[in-house]
Design a protein around this nucleic acid. Structure first.
Lengths: 197, 197
DNA sequence: ACGCCTTGTTGACCTTCGGTTAGTAAGCGC
DNA sequence: GCGCTTACTAACCGAAGGTCAACAAGGCGT
């Protein structure tokens, strides 16, 4: 009788903590099933909050999904910055190795990032921004001031190559060994760039 | 007064004609805006029919979208089959050239196919089926009976390379010339496969 | 201890979506 | 003309994304 009027008190969280919790919940659900098959109500329920609060933290479903990937994209992008004083080949090798290491550690996020790249315009631009930026840096490092269209194609193509090879690599249970894959990737860029000069 | 009861007669079309019309309408709308931003009601309205009829022809939105891409995927897949009696390099060159030709002629469908590749599971599997099949054929032609994991990565990666390079090519206004791009593509496969043996 | 005030949080509400179905009419064969 | 097949419509449904006024948790000054 005593608790008839207990309106189920809720816990008040700090903004950043709540935001983080929502992102994690969303990431989990979106990874398990696709973007389309997860509803905002569901995310809210899984996080133990109301739908309204979810919309208080994120302006919409797309934005929420994109935010879910943003962190991964940021990390991935950060890995490609290398010490510019080192020889080009060493920089490349180091960057590729770091990339592979991250993928190994976050294979789920990586696969989700790629597979949902085309789904929404927001995510597509997210992936494209990372790729374009990386491509620009590589092109600049390779082609000097005035890079040829062919070189641009080669570098852009190579970035796709990397993702295709990595996806296949993950799917095949991380075979061949990481060092071998790294060599393949680095070697292919060298070859493609050489062909495109 | 006379036409007060004219319940707006509708035109009856043959099944295949109607189906084709719907696919074309859908393709147009989906290309203009994304998958998410086009509603089934909208498609029906644009085609001048009821939503119910649209659902009579296609079991759901995803299936409709996939059907919209199916034709393109079929054509693209058909292009990769070559005369097995010719030398391997000639086969490859011919297939790549045909691929580039198709892309040039259907750049919109191609871009849409790639950009929405990850969106739905149906479409993803559509693209992946084409890629896997092509990869299998190339791997078989290159690696004999027991292809190494590294070779699989190389070939899969190269298929992605192709799409990345082609997308960049289209975006840059078909620069460099098609023959040059073809050489880059063929050369890169040769190099990657060589590295992966 | 108490009440105030900020703000994290709710839940009812709206519109539109994907999807279903009972029924209508076009147009062909007789 | 007449009926029969079937392309087609329109009204409908549950659930989705999205909005909003009101509520209460909990830190703060007293």
């Amino acid at each position: 009788m005593a608790s008839l009027r207990t309106r189920r008190a809720f816990r008040r969280l700090e903004v950043e903590a709540r935001r983080q919790q929502l992102l994690e919940t969303g990431a989990r659900l979106f990874t398990e099933r696709g973007y389309e098959d997860v509803s905002m109500s569901e995310v809210a329920a899984a996080a133990g909050i109301s739908k309204g609060l979810l919309y208080h933290y994120f302006p919409g479903k797309r934005a929420f999904f994109a935010a879910t990937l943003e962190a991964a994209a940021q990390e991935l992008r950060a890995l490609t910055v290398t010490d510019p004083d080192l020889p080009a080949l060493e920089q490349l090798t180091a960057a590729v190795d770091a990339y592979l290491g991250w993928i190994e550690a976050h294979s789920e996020s990586y696969a989700r990032l790629l597979h949902s790249a085309g789904a929404l315009a927001d995510v597509a631009s997210l992936v494209q921004r990372v790729r374009d930026e990386t491509a620009e840096r590589i092109v600049a490092g390779l082609g000097g001031d005035e890079p040829s269209p062919a070189l641009r194609c080669a570098v852009h193509g190579w970035l796709w190559f990397m993702d295709g090879a990595c996806l296949q690599w993950l799917q095949a249970g991380r075979e061949p060994p990481r060092e071998r894959l790294r060599e393949l990737l680095v070697g292919t860029l060298a070859a493609a760039a050489g062909l495109a000069v």
